[in-house]
C-alpha cells in the first residue's frame, strides 16, 4: 500500500480530513454532521496515515493512547451533564450561553461539549482498534 503517490498525499489528506472532521463536528447542531460522524472521519484519517507510514508515526503524532482519548471523551461527555445538575435541572439538560467573541455572538452550549465527548470516544475507540489491527506483531 505504500506507493509513492499514496505516501506523498497521505499527510495532506490526513490533515484535511481531521480539519474537516472538526468542521463537521461543530456544524452538527444545525446541519448534517455531529460528533459521531466527525469522529468516524477523524478515525479514517488516522487509519489512512497508518496505512501509508506504519503505526508508530501515528502513535507518536497522537501523543496519547487512543483509548486514553476515548476515555477522556467519555469524561467530557459525562461532565457536560453536570452543570445542569448543579442548576437543579435533570442530568444532561443542555444549557446555553451567548458570549460575544470579537464582536460576534457565538452560541455555546453544554450540548456542544457533550458532542465533543462523543467525537473523542468514537475517534479514540475506532483508531485504537484500527491501529492494533495494522500492527502486525505476531
Amino acid at each position: 500500500m505504500s506507493t509513492v503517490i499514496f505516501r506523498a498525499i497521505a499527510p495532506y489528506l490526513t490533515a484535511l480530513m481531521v480539519l474537516f472532521s472538526v468542521f463537521v463536528l461543530l456544524r452538527g447542531h444545525n446541519n448534517p454532521g455531529g460528533g459521531f460522524i466527525g469522529g468516524l472521519i477523524a478515525a479514517s484519517a488516522f487509519a489512512i496515515y497508518g496505512i501509508a507510514y506504519g503505526v508508530p508515526p501515528v502513535r507518536r503524532a497522537l501523543r496519547f493512547h487512543p483509548m486514553g482519548i476515548a476515555g477522556f471523551g467519555l469524561v467530557v461527555a459525562t461532565l457536560a451533564g453536570v452543570p445542569s445538575l448543579i442548576g437543579g435541572k435533570p442530568f444532561l439538560t443542555a444549557l446555553w450561553a451567548y458570549p460575544k467573541i470579537f464582536g460576534m455572538e457565538v452560541a455555546i452550549s453544554t450540548a456542544t461539549f457533550f458532542d465533543i465527548g462523543v467525537y473523542l470516544v468514537v475517534l479514540g475507540t475506532i483508531t485504537s482498534v484500527a491501529l492494533s489491527l495494522e500492527e502486525r506483531e505476531r
Partner: peptide, 13 residues
C-alpha cells in the same frame, strides 16, 4: 434545543 438538525439534537440533547 436551539438546533435545526433534528437528528443531532435528538442525539446530544
Amino acid at each position: 434545543a436551539h438546533g435545526r438538525n433534528i437528528v443531532n439534537v435528538i442525539i446530544v440533547d
